[in-house]
Protein backbone atom coordinates (compact mmCIF):
# COMPACT_ATOMS: atom_id res chain seq x y z
CA UNK A 1 0.00 0.00 0.00
CA UNK A 2 1.31 3.43 -0.93
CA UNK A 3 1.51 5.77 2.01
CA UNK A 4 1.25 9.50 1.97
CA UNK A 5 4.61 11.14 1.28
CA UNK A 6 5.03 14.00 3.74
CA UNK A 7 1.86 16.05 3.77
CA UNK A 8 0.78 15.30 0.23
CA UNK A 9 -1.22 12.34 -0.88
CA UNK A 10 0.55 10.12 -3.42
CA UNK A 11 -1.14 8.33 -6.25
CA UNK A 12 -2.63 4.98 -5.42
CA UNK A 13 -4.25 3.92 -2.20
CA UNK A 14 -4.14 5.59 1.19
CA UNK A 15 -5.53 4.67 4.57
CA UNK A 16 -8.51 7.00 4.89
CA UNK A 17 -8.57 6.45 8.65
CA UNK A 18 -4.97 7.55 9.06
CA UNK A 19 -4.40 10.67 11.18
CA UNK A 20 -2.88 13.60 9.31
CA UNK A 21 0.62 14.74 10.20
CA UNK A 22 0.40 17.69 12.62
CA UNK A 23 1.26 21.03 11.03
CA UNK A 24 4.16 23.09 12.27
CA UNK A 25 2.34 26.36 12.84
CA UNK A 26 4.49 28.47 15.16
CA UNK A 27 3.42 31.63 16.93
CA UNK A 28 4.37 34.92 15.35
CA UNK A 29 6.67 36.67 17.78
CA UNK A 30 7.84 39.70 15.81
CA UNK A 31 6.48 42.04 13.16
CA UNK A 32 7.33 41.17 9.55
CA UNK A 33 7.66 43.49 6.56
CA UNK A 34 8.78 43.14 2.96
CA UNK A 35 10.90 45.68 1.14
CA UNK A 36 9.22 45.28 -2.23
CA UNK A 37 6.37 43.23 -3.66
CA UNK A 38 8.83 40.52 -4.72
CA UNK A 39 10.96 40.55 -1.57
CA UNK A 40 10.44 37.97 1.19
CA UNK A 41 8.98 38.93 4.58
CA UNK A 42 11.70 39.90 7.06
CA UNK A 43 11.60 40.71 10.79
CA UNK A 44 11.17 44.35 11.76
CA UNK A 45 10.68 46.48 14.86
CA UNK A 46 7.18 47.53 15.88
CA UNK A 47 8.06 51.12 15.03
CA UNK A 48 9.14 50.22 11.50
CA UNK A 49 6.15 47.92 10.93
CA UNK A 50 3.58 50.45 12.15
CA UNK A 51 5.27 53.24 10.19
CA UNK A 52 4.89 51.14 7.05
CA UNK A 53 1.23 50.39 7.81
CA UNK A 54 0.46 54.08 8.26
CA UNK A 55 2.34 54.97 5.06
CA UNK A 56 0.56 52.21 3.14
CA UNK A 57 -2.89 53.27 4.36
CA UNK A 58 -2.20 56.94 3.70
CA UNK A 59 -0.92 56.23 0.18
CA UNK A 60 -3.99 54.12 -0.61
CA UNK A 61 -6.32 56.83 0.70
CA UNK A 62 -4.55 59.56 -1.26
CA UNK A 63 -4.64 57.54 -4.46
CA UNK A 64 -8.07 55.91 -4.33
CA UNK A 65 -10.13 57.54 -1.53
CA UNK A 66 -11.56 55.89 1.58
CA UNK A 67 -13.78 53.32 -0.17
CA UNK A 68 -10.62 51.51 -1.29
CA UNK A 69 -10.23 50.06 2.22
CA UNK A 70 -11.50 46.72 3.41
CA UNK A 71 -11.25 45.56 7.03
CA UNK A 72 -11.76 41.87 7.89
CA UNK A 73 -12.48 41.58 11.60
CA UNK A 74 -12.39 38.41 13.62
CA UNK A 75 -15.11 36.20 15.09
CA UNK A 76 -12.63 34.72 17.56
CA UNK A 77 -11.46 38.09 18.88
CA UNK A 78 -13.13 39.87 21.79
CA UNK A 79 -16.01 42.31 21.54
CA UNK A 80 -13.56 45.05 22.41
CA UNK A 81 -11.25 44.22 19.47
CA UNK A 82 -14.24 44.10 17.12
CA UNK A 83 -15.47 47.44 18.44
CA UNK A 84 -11.98 48.91 17.95
CA UNK A 85 -11.69 47.47 14.43
CA UNK A 86 -14.98 48.98 13.26
CA UNK A 87 -14.12 52.30 14.92
CA UNK A 88 -10.75 52.28 13.13
CA UNK A 89 -12.43 51.50 9.81
CA UNK A 90 -15.13 54.14 10.14
CA UNK A 91 -13.38 56.93 11.98
CA UNK A 92 -9.71 56.62 10.92
CA UNK A 93 -9.92 55.08 7.43
CA UNK A 94 -13.36 56.57 6.72
CA UNK A 95 -14.81 53.34 5.33
CA UNK A 96 -17.83 51.18 6.14
CA UNK A 97 -16.19 48.25 4.33
CA UNK A 98 -15.83 46.14 7.45
CA UNK A 99 -17.05 42.61 7.97
CA UNK A 100 -16.17 39.59 10.03
CA UNK A 101 -15.94 35.92 9.16
CA UNK A 102 -19.55 35.37 10.22
CA UNK A 103 -20.51 34.56 6.64
CA UNK A 104 -18.35 31.48 6.12
Amino acid sequence: MTRRAGRRYTRGVVDSQEAPVPKDYVRLTQPLVRDSKDAPLRPASWDEALTRVVAGFQAAKAQHGPTTFGVFSCSKATNEVNFAAQKFSRSVLGSNNIDSCNRT
Partner: peptide, 17 residues
Protein backbone atom coordinates in the same frame (compact mmCIF):
# COMPACT_ATOMS: atom_id res chain seq x y z
CA UNK B 1 -23.04 30.52 16.17
CA UNK B 2 -20.02 28.62 14.91
CA UNK B 3 -17.21 30.57 16.55
CA UNK B 4 -16.84 31.84 20.07
CA UNK B 5 -17.71 35.40 19.12
CA UNK B 6 -19.60 35.42 15.83
CA UNK B 7 -22.49 36.93 17.75
CA UNK B 8 -20.33 39.65 19.29
CA UNK B 9 -18.63 40.62 16.03
CA UNK B 10 -21.98 41.62 14.59
CA UNK B 11 -23.19 43.15 17.85
CA UNK B 12 -20.09 45.38 17.94
CA UNK B 13 -20.73 46.79 14.47
CA UNK B 14 -18.08 44.83 12.57
CA UNK B 15 -20.68 44.85 9.79
CA UNK B 16 -20.83 47.07 6.70
CA UNK B 17 -24.33 48.36 7.42
Amino acid sequence: RGQNNVQGGGDMGALPD
